[in-house]
Nucleic acid binder design. Structure first.
Lengths: 253, 253
DNA sequence: CGGCAACTTGAATCAATTCAAGACACGTGG
DNA sequence: CCACGTGTCTTGAATTGATTCAAGTTGCCG
């Protein structure tokens, strides 16, 4: 629950033309004009500590961000403190688009690990829409992708059993992480606690723990270094009756 | 579970300039150019029977729609038939945007009542983005609004009690319905069965019935004519600890 | 009048929460 | 170097909440 604020670093280390994410097979090619506009769109970079709050519900942020590195999660709170995690953000994902469009943030975002964010000016979105219809289309596409993920999560929480839910969630996160090359030599380590899983699945911490234990007994996942590692990805998918998110190449703003 | 297909009516009764929805206070003003483009964007109207399937998961629809009148719901199925309702659609809402952008439909849509839909050509979306950045922005805004509603639903299913969930859902739907003037003289009648509510809240039919009964005992809602009527809107909001969706005026495509 | 769909209800069973406590690793200050 | 606090994970037991099973009611349409 440490709620420190984000630390800023003004210097920009990565010009968009040398973006380390862009060459990944997960992302579509951009032409020179688009790239150079994004370059001017980018205001700088922001370094964020683990546990820091990137955006707060109720605020009116002047910025939106793309994750360069690190993990975060989006959540909402009920007045009495009950927390629901809505989705996770990882490299290549846009953060704060909803707030940029609708004015006020309706959810908060917290870093799960140290992060590096590309900072964009909300005001310039209009210019993007005026002059770069392709990028505008991409942004709508990104919003739709988020919607699709939420649909899946809703199906999961509403209709899957606890064991299926846990299997689905871990497979889902691992699948996305692999898409952005987060599995170097070793399998991906997902930097979340069981409390995060509980707050994502809509279960209590105790029951989540017992459920994850079953997944570990079945040798589907492993818990190590305060994080989760997938042992048998296909086993998780099968248990969850999940088809996987047939992801084509996507835009990177 | 009647799964008849939609019946088409080619004739267009409502030119966009005389759209019965547009004058409603819920929608923002459009200038003449935008209006005339939308007019050419519109291919015709589609009449749909109650219970008909408008769009099916897995299909590649060439169209997207705006609801002129009537109600529908969006849902996903698990392989074994478990159903999760994701959201409801009512007049002024866009249907099938996600499918238009991503190619394949990832959810199905079924009519809750007879409906009238404006039909648009998916192909022309690109032209819209190229020539009408304001409308393009609107479409992204609409996608974000859907995302926001899903966030709320996720919070509800994940973290609210059964009674709070039911109260939230009914207040939420009623609030949206009132926004588009569906409460003429009498209170809105929401044309859904308790099975729909169960499949939205992630509860069994039996337990949903007992939960709704509690709401009726508290004189918050009423069940009549195979549908639901709100008696005490503020009471529902309070019980659900829901602030309401502070809706400003929104675009109507 | 029969049949079907939606709504009700009680009882038995199962799943999930809450309560309570302990284990373990890690970092910090004495 | 050790004591202490904190955060995370773990486990058992009691309780509550939700599901399933089984029947019955009601209203409507052909």
């Amino acid at each position: 629950m440490s709620s420190q604020s984000a630390r800023s670093i003004a210097s920009r280390q990565y010009p968009c033309e040398k973006c380390p994410l862009r060459p990944l097979p997960a992302f579509r090619e951009f032409d020179k004009q688009e790239l150079s506009f994004i370059s001017t769109f980018k205001r700088g970079e922001l370094a964020v500590d683990k546990g820091a709050t990137v955006l707060v519900e109720g605020s009116h942020s002047a910025h939106l961000y793309t994750v360069l590195s690190g993990w975060a999660f989006r959540y909402k709170l009920l007045p009495d403190g009950r927390r629901q995690i809505l989705n996770y953000s990882m490299p290549g994902d846009l953060i704060g688009l909803q707030g940029s469009l609708m004015g006020e943030m309706q959810h908060s975002v917290e870093a799960l690990s140290p992060m590096l964010l590309c900072v964009f000016e909300r005001e310039q979105l209009h210019e993007l829409y005026r002059n770069y219809p392709g990028l505008a289309y991409d942004i709508t596409w990104i919003a739709s992708r988020e919607e699709r993920m939420l649909d899946e999560n809703l199906l999961s929480i509403g209709r899957r059993t606890a064991l299926e839910r846990a299997a689905y969630l871990i497979a889902f996160i691992a699948s996305r992480a692999r898409g952005v090359g987060l599995n170097g030599k070793t399998p991906v380590r997902i930097p979340i606690t069981q409390q995060h899983i509980a707050d994502t699945l809509g279960l209590s911490l105790v029951h989540t723990n017992k459920t994850i234990r079953k997944l570990m007994d079945r040798k589907l996942v492993m818990w190590r270094d305060g994080g989760c590692e997938v042992i048998d990805y296909d086993g998780l998918k099968k248990l969850a009756r999940w088809e996987g998110l047939g992801e084509e190449r996507r835009p990177l703003i």
